[in-house]
Amino acid sequence: MNPLCSNQVDIFEIYRRYCEITAGTRTLGEEGYRPDDDSQKAKLSRQALYELLKLVESRLHTRMSICDEISKLMSKLDLMVDFSEFSHFYDFVFFICRESGQKNISVSRAVMSWRLVLAGRFRLLNQWCDFVEKNQRHNISEDTWRQVLAFSRCVHENLEGYDPEGAWPVLIDDFVEYMYRIMGSNNDPNLICSCGDSEAQLFEDPFPGL
């Protein structure tokens, strides 16, 4: 049904469309139609994303090739400078990992993608991925996915910056608990995370290969 031939759409094109949809500039291709209602808009963009996802599935057959596609895209994007660009890309990774219309992504895909995109950006990346592989039985929700990025930005090796009162997903809480247990908890838990609204925490050790 889709007029576009599958081999004409590459990962860059998908990403471009994804950005358009999420930025709200493109809704189902109907020119000049601008819904006022927010929820209406959200509904339309959800629909558009769903269509796009179907397209992705018809195009990308093999699971493992996703990994390559993401790397390819990553190498072309200028992600080191602008965090909002990276954050956008990060959300896109979740989107592209969704399988057969599901809302959540499998643990193995999530871990694989984290290892790829958060390399050099998350000091506890290895521990995190090992922990999730070992302990998480259910799929990873979009909310958890996003919160992991926020979490990666505000904790250091010693977990300072984690606010136990915060609304972290339980998976992250469990991870912190687990880390404290294996580290011996002689850290100062009083430092409060102020992530999410500041660009001040720049990455001290950017991944050199990109």
Partner: peptide, 30 residues
């Protein structure tokens, strides 16, 4: 923890969303 898990589940089921600027704030989606 049980409550947190339910909140996460309700986010997935589009009953709630996190505020875009403040992740500690939840909004109800009608």
């Amino acid at each position: 923890k049980a409550i947190k898990k339910r909140i996460e589940d309700l986010i997935t089921r589009d009953y709630l969303e996190r505020d875009k600027d403040n992740p500690n704030l939840f909004r109800y989606l009608a």
